[in-house]
Design a protein around this nucleic acid. Structure first.
Length: 139
DNA sequence: CGTGTTTGACCAGCGC
DNA sequence: GCGCTGGTCAAACACG
């Protein structure tokens, strides 16, 4: 590590950050629980996210929720109990690792998932969920 | 035959 | 106003 390394653990500013989970089973449980709670309108107000002007503008425009999970895993295909359809892959300018875009296969479900590897720690996988499932787990 | 994956192209937002 | 970056779409392909 160099002295000029800003190396923040995570660049979080517009979405909620959950703690790291080592087991996918636990992740699945947490994700499912979160979506079920969020579905009931417990939390996740876009105005509740941050206070930066840029973020507020973005959040206001999308009026959506973003949740980020950091998981230690070798594979990026983490099973969270939902079925996803990959719709895009992109190489980040500031990251040597590609980012995968997934969307929920359920009809009428607006939820999108973004999977990326931590550039500082490739053993960690960052899973970002957008929106909330309006249906229970199909599994 | 249906569904999911893949890959390049296209587009919109933001910075300079 | 132009260029860059990230995000999405869509056609073709691979697989069950």
């Amino acid at each position: 590590m160099t002295s000029t390394t800003p190396a923040p653990e995570f660049e979080v500013s517009e979405f909620f950050m959950f703690e790291s989970y080592n087991s996918t089973d636990d992740l699945s449980t947490v994700v499912s629980a979160y979506f079920q709670e969020a579905s009931g309108g417990i939390r996740c107000s876009p105005t509740q996210v941050e206070t930066s002007s840029r973020v507020d503008r973005s959040a206001e425009r999308e009026a959506r929720v973003r949740i980020a999970f950091k998981t230690e895993s070798e594979i990026d295909s983490l099973d969270d109990g939902y079925k996803w359809r990959k719709y895009g892959k992109k190489m980040l300018k500031n990251s040597p690792n590609p980012r995968n875009y997934y969307k929920c296969s359920v009809n009428g479900c607006p939820v999108k998932k973004r999977i990326e590897r931590d550039k500082y720690d490739t053993r960690y996988v960052i899973t970002t969920y957008q929106d909330v499932h309006s249906h229970p787990t199909s599994n």
